[in-house]
Design a binder for these strands. Structure first.
Lengths: 220, 220
DNA sequence: CCTCCGTTGGATCGTCGCTCCAATCAAGCT
DNA sequence: AGCTTGATTGGAGCGACGATCCAACGGAGG
């Protein structure tokens, strides 16, 4: 039995994590299997486990990478309110582009990478003259909202299996089901069905951020 | 080879789902395996799959049951604002008691059981005189917030593996790590560490709901 | 009493994450 | 140059999972 030749270029933690990220981006969470990784890197399990603790480690590190990249790319605006909106949108867009990041963040919400996010929000609330005693609750609420929406969106994105069906097709599907509920029992849901079909996730997310900002402003 | 005796009392979808719920409540998501179910019900795979489509079906139905039970138990108050707070708290407490419900809802946010939740919120926003054009965004935002926080809490609860370590011990752990971050780089996070140790998830959640309500009021 | 069909139990399959160890090679030593 | 050693690699194998499939069962209707 001939053994396949040993690789000469060094395998490294970085290379492995990048390969994992590519697998995740192209095929979603379920595409990241150790077997797929060994094939892609043409190596074996041992080599991978020598650089990485386990699959959790892999997912967590890949997630941290994406988050860090996003947060460093957010532009600071003169207006703290605008900066905050930009920050929130940055995270939203990142998770929209990499739904698996949302799922992983919902599983481990206290990853170190989110420290920067939390810190930024705290400072911006300070700049917005939020009283100190309310700042903790306000920051927590905002973080929870942003992560919450992002996770929901990730779930919706995961619903589209391979990318065959379009996002709008998915919305049409849900909207159609909502349109067929009993208008007597569910007047609001029924009336909302049309708006659901036309709505823009990104805009609705920003509208939510604005509601919370208005509420926070009302605190002082 | 002797076959174990055939059961005489009828197995039913309800019995299976209740057993699944008990497994989930006692051991978390990873405790629900088909093998564990066959042992608990002293039956085989075939019997279970005869009544249930697959494991997703199991999880989804169990989740629907919990949600429905919660929503039917929420008292309607004269003040729509109070009713809304009660509704949100009801979902919060339910997911706090059954963390797996939070995880499942984040995976499938459009389950029929949430229709009632969405409908109730829509009506309450109407009672709060939220302009119709803003009601859709407002309802979506609130649902996202409630589900988002609930999911985070579920994730934290899942962090405590078997219930050995206490919830406060977990908070102490996170707070300790936050207290040791570089105060120069993360002044806000550092300053927040003490509040984190003392904070009450439930109260903070309610504070978030109040921020939202204040923001809604500012819309009109 | 018999037949039939809705149920039931469990052997089996393919895949998963992960462990374990022999094989391999580069760097350091004499 | 030859030897040694330890870090690194590749892959067989393990136990557990969700799911499928089918033979065996037994109560309801004739």
């Amino acid at each position: 039995m001939k053994r396949s030749p040993r690789r000469t270029d060094g395998l490294s933690r970085e290379v492995i994590i990048q390969a994992a990220t590519e697998l995740l981006d192209s095929g979603g969470e379920r595409a990241l299997t150790l077997r797929a990784l060994t094939v892609r890197l043409s190596t074996g399990y041992g080599a991978i486990y020598h650089h990485v603790a386990d699959k959790n480690d892999l997912l967590a590190t890949a997630t941290d990478d994406v988050i860090t990249r996003v947060l460093s790319g957010v532009a600071a605006d003169a207006d703290p309110r605008e900066t905050l909106r930009g920050l929130a949108l940055g995270l939203f867009d990142a998770i929209d582009a990499h739904p698996w990041v949302g799922a992983e963040l919902s599983r481990q919400p206290w990853r170190p990478a989110l420290l920067d996010f939390y810190e930024s929000i705290g400072r911006l609330l300070d700049a917005l003259a939020v009283p100190e005693r309310a700042r903790f609750d306000a920051a927590g609420t905002l973080v929870n909202y942003v992560l919450g929406v992002a996770v929901q969106n990730a779930a919706n994105a995961r619903y589209l299996v391979g990318g065959d069906t379009d996002r709008s097709a998915f919305l049409d599907d849900v909207a159609a089901r909502w349109a067929h509920v009993d208008p007597g029992r569910y007047p609001f849901v029924h009336a909302t069905a049309t708006q659901l079909r036309e709505h823009d996730d990104r805009k609705q997310f920003l509208a939510g951020v604005d509601i919370f900002l208005a509420g926070i402003a009302a605190l002082s």
